[in-house]
Nucleic acid binder design. Sequence first.
DNA 1: TCTGATTGTTAGCATTGTCTAACTTTATGC
DNA 2: GCATAAAGTTAGACAATGCTAACAATCAGA
Lengths: 158, 158
Amino acid sequence: MCDTKLMTQRDLANPTPSVTDGRPADLRAEAFQGVRDARSRELAEDYVELIAELIHDHGEARPVEIAARLGVRPPTVTKALDRLAREGLITRAKYRSVFLTDEGRALARECRRRHEIVLRFLLSLGLDAETAERDAEGIEHHVSERTLALFAAYASKS
Amino acid sequence: MCDTKLMTQRDLANPTPSVTDGRPADLRAEAFQGVRDARSRELAEDYVELIAELIHDHGEARPVEIAARLGVRPPTVTKALDRLAREGLITRAKYRSVFLTDEGRALARECRRRHEIVLRFLLSLGLDAETAERDAEGIEHHVSERTLALFAAYASKS
DNA sequence: TCTGATTGTTAGCATTGTCTAACTTTATGC
DNA sequence: GCATAAAGTTAGACAATGCTAACAATCAGA
Ligand SMILES: [Mn+2]
Ligand SMILES: [Mn+2]
Ligand SMILES: [Mn+2]
Ligand SMILES: [Mn+2]
């Protein structure tokens, strides 16, 4: 009943399938896949970057401090650190502080570099420091090397 | 045994607790919380933006097409659409195409606007179209209104 | 050296977001 | 109109990411 104006399938059989605004749907899908990949790396990136920073500034990285900086609860950190250890980015012993592996250190350096380029770029655009830091924290995980190069060029030339 | 050089807790009691590079840890945590919030909205944003686009271009939004564009499997779309319906962003009936609610339409418009500003900005910086589209797809979810304004200004003035 | 405070882990729960396999419904083409 | 193809859903698995409550280990101070 009540067959109002519900459209049925294949209502408007499109002669040019899977193309929108010039780009094939394939490429769109690839873009989305890339974003999903980046999202899956975000957490590890923020953790190793923060751990490196804590080690640099305080000599060590303690879970309680990581939790405070990230704004999450300690058990969340425990679980995340277990994952990072499984992925070979950190080493740790129960109830001790956290260490970066060579791989973790390399990733941390890369993340820090990206973070700083993005942050400096936003600041050089005229953004206030707090908003810049907030936006950079999210954007940093989604900028390609190519974009990063343009950001760096703009920031240094301004 | 083997008590090598493992540091113990409170090794370097820091006199200035919870401050790094000038900003209180609180603000850092807020930034991370903001990124987590943004991440939790990403999926809904991409879906409603895509649904609006499909309705505009093809007259309707079918799950199979959504799946193809996003590069995910149909059951993933079914589940996601159920969530969107629960959140009041879309309406749908089994085996039928998807419709946006007023709220969904408003969100879609907002997302499209952000997407386009970010995209145009990246292009005006000199980025190639494909990379720009890829980066914009991720960045769009992490730009504040303030940053967006600067992006728009830069793009129009270049 | 106790002992209380702090730190960290474990257990268990919820949600999200992805998949495959199997099934159902709808559409298409003869 | 039926048979097959296409689209969509359901069921069930799994990993990630968060939480609280409860317990365990460590540290720090008297
Ligand atoms: Mn970040
Ligand atoms: Mn960062
Ligand atoms: Mn997007
Ligand atoms: Mn988008």
